[in-house]
Design a protein around this nucleic acid. Structure first.
Length: 462
RNA sequence: GGCGUCGUACCCAAGUGGCUCAAGGGAGCAGUUUGCAAAACUGUCAUUCGCCGGUUCGAAUCCGGCCGACGCCUCCA
């Protein structure tokens, strides 16, 4: 069975067929670096990371491009408010973003083009749109895209332009334009822009938001590529506008598959910076969340469903991380790694089918948990073959290469802890349970969990 | 007003006409194991899928209505 995706453009699942066999061009809308990204932003980035990992596992060579929006209203406004340069501001938050990405164990994209580095490319695109009559200039130096010149406008979001209610914001727009819904390709320089601006044939200014993605995606992946992702809120107007610009400029189809991830909710509502009800990654770190437990929370629900992020789920996600991590240790203790010969257990094909079904992570997880239970059971009864152990090892490794739930067990035991363990062992041999229990308790307070097994005591980090 | 999503156990969360079904996880309870714990495993945990009608031999799954929650239409993952 080949992989199927729910293509937002067609609103149905379809088999994925790459433009070039074995390769996938993947463009994902990245952050606007005017502030810290929050956990809701990372829900989308985590989904895109999962997608890339799964495609890679299937053998595709994925070229993943994630843009960094480093010039727009918000970045300019904030830099000006802080009295620093746009570059200083965006560099700061880009750095934070990269740190968070790495902490969450997300694989880096192949490239992170910045909008400010793609201005010439954007100008070229706009020139082409002007030449072909899809865009027009205004007296203030702005350039707008004429949406009525593109009959397919609204196809992605099924929006009928004429039926739209006009918001106050639109009619009060500070820029001149022919029709309220025409969107800016280029915004003429205004005083509030300060020293932010680039020279263009139609005057100094800065790019509109949407043009950067059209420019950078075609630059990195070609005019026509495989997959474009983003959050559902980007469907309109951002992605709709991208399609309009790109297709009108190149005359070619733009993207084959559009994938959109749903929102992450908190307190029953959308988490967003403007509402102030959000968690940054640093907030969650302070609250004691591990990257693995956050990964579980973000990946346990299907990407097209709203998920609830909750501090109450911390315990649940930690239990999962612990179970899977313990499972790995148990396999290692049984030398499973030495028995692996590249064979997978039966459960793997079910897991694969479920992942191939539009990345059905909830059911894929269910498959893995059932498998884990079965193997644990066999280990308990000591009725497991070397072949089964090897296959379990293979499956576990694939599983973790996709979900990344396993917590590293590299830790050093200090001299002091070592002494405590020896003391406890001695107490146990003397059946001095009171002392043994009290040492276990005191170690627990220091962040260590001691477990007694048939092979003696074991220590791990709490 | 237009477009769209969703309502499943104490909590999270799958399933979208019949087949092995209301998956899986967390919490709880009971048990195996253990000196005791922990871990692991076993059992238990929704005759029922917001409510009311309809279609059908058969619906959580399709249709209609109602109630409720949410998103987009303006920057937003």
């Amino acid at each position: 069975m080949s992989i199927q995706f729910y293509n937002s453009l067609k609103r149905e699942k379809e088999n994925f067929v790459p433009i070039e066999e074995g390769k996938v061009g993947l463009y994902t809308c990245g952050p606007t670096v005017y502030d810290f990204a929050h956990i809701g932003n990372f829900r989308t980035f985590m989904f895109e990371d999962l997608l890339k990992r799964w495609l890679t596992h299937l053998g595709y060579r994925v070229n993943h491009v994630m843009n960094i929006t480093d010039v727009d209203d918000k970045t300019i406004k904030k830099a000006s408010a802080e009295g620093i340069s746009l570059l200083d501001l965006t560099t700061r938050y880009t750095d934070h973003f990269m740190i968070d990405l790495e902490w969450l164990k997300m694989l880096p994209a192949n490239s992170y083009p910045k909008a400010t580095n793609a201005i010439p490319k954007m100008i070229k695109l706009i020139e082409r749109l002007l030449e072909k009559g899809f865009a027009y200039q205004e007296r203030d130096g702005s350039v707008y895209f004429n949406i009525r010149s593109f009959p397919d406008y609204g196809r992605l979001t099924h929006i009928d332009i004429k039926a739209q209610k006009q918001g106050d914001r639109v009619s009060e727009d500070e820029y001149d334009k022919d029709a309220p819904q025409d969107f800016a390709l280029w915004k003429g320089w205004k005083e509030s822009d300060g020293n932010v601006g680039w020279d263009a044939p139609w005057g100094k200014g800065r790019p509109g938001w949407h043009i950067e993605c059209s420019a950078m995606s075609s630059d990195a992946l070609g005019d026509h590529f495989d997959i474009h992702c983003g959050g559902v809120d980007n469907m309109f107007p951002h992605h709709e506008n991208e399609i309009a610009q790109s297709q009108c400029a190149t005359g070619e189809p733009f993207v084959n598959v559009w994938l959109h991830s749903e929102f992450l909710m908190v307190d029953g509502g959308k988490m967003s910076k403007s509402l102030g009800n959000f968690y940054r990654i640093s907030d969650l770190r302070e609250l004691g969340f591990s990257p693995e437990s956050i990964r579980y929370q973000l990946l346990a629900g299907h990407y097209r469903s709203k998920i609830l992020f909750s501090l109450d789920k911390k315990h649940e996600s930690e239990r999962i991380v612990q179970r899977v991590s313990d499972f790995q240790l148990r396999l290692i203790e049984n030398n499973a790694d030495q028995f692996s010969v590249g064979l997978f257990p039966e459960a793997y094909s079910e897991f694969k089918n479920r992942m191939n079904n539009d990345l059905d992570t909830p059911r894929a997880l269910a498959t893995f948990f059932e498998f884990m239970k079965k193997i644990n059971s066999k280990l308990d009864e000591q009725k497991i073959s070397e072949m089964e152990l090897g296959a379990a090892w293979e499956f576990l490794n694939v599983f973790d290469s996709i979900f990344g739930f396993i917590q590293s067990n590299d830790f050093e035991i200090s001299q002091e802890i070592e002494e405590q363990l020896n003391k406890r062992n001695q107490a146990r041999l003397n059946k001095n349970w009171a002392e043994s229990d009290s040492i276990r308790k005191s170690l627990h307070k220091k962040g260590w969990i001691v477990e007694d097994t048939h092979d003696g005591q074991k220590i791990k980090k709490a």
